[in-house]
């Protein structure tokens, strides 16, 4: 048996989620008594995965330097076949979810996305994953000879376990792409909903786009990404990219702060898997309080500025 983890990279460096995926892969390999290798593309700091217990890295650089799902899927499936890989561990980023189904089809592998823990059972391999947009969990058996586990963001955590790590340069044989990149726009220097530890989200209770400085200032102090409810993006107060919930982006962070959001079932479904939820709403009957860990019943226009001041003081001290 042999475990392969896919460590994502960007701008020639590992992405943040690589640490969690590596931690999961190492823990899985030790349960299986199997070897564990990481495969990565264009990551000059690949060896840093040694901090999470990875001893061996297959590094590929003869594919396009930007993320190219087709070229990467071909390279990974060739490597997995050659090395008789039985378990592949991948993340839950937009790129990972692009790559995993391509790989699954190429390798005739089983694939379970949004997995939240190490397998319940190793044979048949059974994993717990979210389903029904976080309204439930499914325990899924993976029945193929090679199986792919997609680890949910922030669901397993990072385990530090420093070891010596060697990086082997591998040549991919099939390097063509079937898509041409025309352009890429990416917010830089700001946390994104997908990889932030904290997300600050605003709803219709904020009354209008002119009040979003409250959400942005709070997010800035917390190094958080900003998000919003669906009506807010429908009305054009915020861009569609910020819409979270069942029909928007899923949020699975350590801390989700909802301000002036009522907590409709479709909103909750998309954010429920966040670890800690804080709600600020002036209506004590707002359904979100039932789904929250901490709540403040109060007017956002008073509570948020005060919270910003207090957090500034707290950050200055710590």
């Amino acid at each position: 048996m042999s475990v392969l983890i896919i460590a994502e990279s960007e701008n020639n460096a590992l992405k943040r989620n690589a640490a969690e995926v590596a931690s999961y892969g190492v823990a899985l390999a030790s349960k299986l008594n199997a070897s564990c290798t990481a495969i990565t593309f264009h990551a000059s700091n690949a060896a840093e995965l040694g901090q999470y217990g990875i001893t061996k890295i297959a590094h590929i650089s003869n594919v396009p330097s930007h993320f190219d799902a087709y070229a990467q899927a071909n390279a990974i499936s060739a490597y997995a076949t050659q090395n008789k890989v039985t378990h592949i561990v991948i993340g839950s980023s937009a790129d990972a979810k692009f790559l995993a189904p391509l790989l699954a089809a190429k390798l005739n592998a089983g694939y379970a996305p949004n997995v939240v823990a190490l397998p319940d059972e190793l044979s048949p391999l059974t994993v717990k994953r979210t389903a029904f947009t976080n309204k439930a969990f499914a325990h899924t058996q993976l029945l193929a000879a090679c199986n792919i586990i997609g680890v949910g963001n922030n669901s397993f955590g990072v385990i530090e376990n420093e070891v010596n790590c060697t990086v082997d340069e591998i040549e991919a044989t099939h390097t063509a792409s079937n898509l041409e990149q025309i352009s890429i726009e990416k917010i830089t220097g700001k946390a994104t909903i997908a990889d932030a530890d904290v997300v600050v989200s605003g709803g219709r209770g904020l009354k209008g786009p002119e009040n979003w400085h409250l959400i942005e200032s709070l997010a800035e102090i917390l190094d958080a990404a900003t998000a919003c409810s669906k009506p807010v993006s429908d009305m054009g107060w915020r861009s569609h990219d910020e819409h979270v919930g069942q029909t928007g982006k899923p949020v699975s962070t350590n801390l989700y702060i909802a301000i002036g959001i009522s907590g409709a079932i479709q909103h909750l479904a998309g954010v429920n898997s966040s670890k800690v939820k804080v709600v600020i709403n002036n209506d004590p009957e707002a359904p979100f309080f039932k789904a929250a860990d901490y709540g403040v019943v109060g007017d956002a226009f008073e509570v948020v500025p005060e919270l910003i001041q207090k957090l500034k003081a707290f950050k200055a001290l710590s």
Binding site: S93, A94, D95, L179, E180, Q181, I182, S183, I184, E185, K186, I187, K190, T192, I193, A194, D195, D241
Partner: peptide, 8 residues
Amino acid sequence: IDGGREKL
């Protein structure tokens, strides 16, 4: 994509 868009 996470935090942006890619045109292909």
